[in-house]
Design a protein around this nucleic acid. Structure first.
Lengths: 183, 183
DNA sequence: CTCAAATACTTAGAGTTGTAAATATATTTA
DNA sequence: TAAATATATTTACAACTCTAAGTATTTGAG
């Protein structure tokens, strides 16, 4: 417990630190999430100022560098964005000649995207899609702390992704104690 | 460990599950964060379809209900958004007559925002700003798990918020073991 | 083979979001 | 008090993001 007190201390100047006593645990989760989301957003803009690339743009470029050539759909899946979103981002990247589109020859519905030489140059000295300071601090944590944090994040992601509840009534074995809301 | 295996199992169909072996721990953090951010966004849109209110709109309304009357700046601070963002959201809420603006009388720079009667009605049967399914699952966790997750989230938020590094060399006492990056 | 359904992508439209610049008001300094 | 500085909001702008609808192409059923 005392391990984390420091962090709460740091927040006590905040508005949210006024301790609404009607705050549930999950409300605090929400607050933390909003802080994270905002920090992510702000970092993306910071990135954009420094390197000319926003976080999603950078992510997509890096994914392409890893895989060489991907369809729009594959990219969308790879970076966890909708296809429509990827299309618009690719538009911007293409306009700056960092990627090029190529209609599939066998299947003409597909659109393959690949990097240009210009992109390689840009990517060479592009910053990380996460705050350096974050990486720094994260790396300095004990291994078990990193594991714990990562597990927690994955767990939150999983719980927020309601899919697994209504989508697959097949493999629910771990949900038995919760499911009796229905009868 | 085995506690979380289930979650990793569920992800194994994913593109990202292909185990890029050059993936760092923090890259996985990034992936988890993107999943969370996306889930949050999608829930917001879901909310909007069901209740006519997006998550930030709902958050602002709830904050106002708690506090009665707040300035734009206070709201921004309270929900962790920039003032400009709050302004545009208030615009939309005002257009739908859910809030009203009132220029401060003593300090005319300030703009006070308060709910209308219409808002009370809307808020009465508005859903939560977090997925019900998430809340459900979260509540069902053991207390220590909730604590761990919340701590982890707060810790991530804290680490992402680079402020505390360059902004306040004053109150760094808990950062000693990390700060030696400098010398 | 033909038509319906599925797949892949793009377009349209709207909300969220931040930064920077513009406005208006208040406070402080000379 | 006048000018400089600080504070509070808004406006302008650009990017991201989704869903839904539209287009093109492929696949499958009959």
């Amino acid at each position: 417990m005392s391990l984390f007190v420091t962090f709460n201390d740091k927040m006590s100047g905040d508005f949210t630190g006024e301790r609404e006593d009607d705050m549930n645990r999950y409300d605090e989760v929400l607050v933390a999430l909003r802080r994270i989301i905002r920090a992510t957003d702000m970092h993306s803009r910071q990135l954009s100022k420094v390197s000319g690339l926003t976080a999603p743009q950078l992510l997509i470029l890096q994914l392409l560098r890893q895989h060489g050539e991907l369809t729009v759909g594959e990219i969308a899946h790879g970076v966890n964005l909708s296809q429509a979103t990827v299309t618009t981002i690719i538009d911007r990247l293409a306009k700056r000649d960092l990627v090029r589109r190529e209609r599939g020859s066998s299947d003409k519905r597909k659109v393959f995207v690949h990097l240009t030489e210009a992109a390689d140059a840009v990517l060479a000295d592009a910053p990380k899609p996460l705050q350096d300071s974050f990486i720094q601090q994260f790396q300095d944590l004990h291994d078990w702390e990193q594991t714990m944090i990562l597990s927690s994040l994955e767990r939150v992601a999983y719980m927020m992704d309601a899919q697994h509840i209504d989508a697959s009534p097949v493999l629910d074995v771990g949900q038995l104690d919760r499911t009796d809301q229905n009868h």
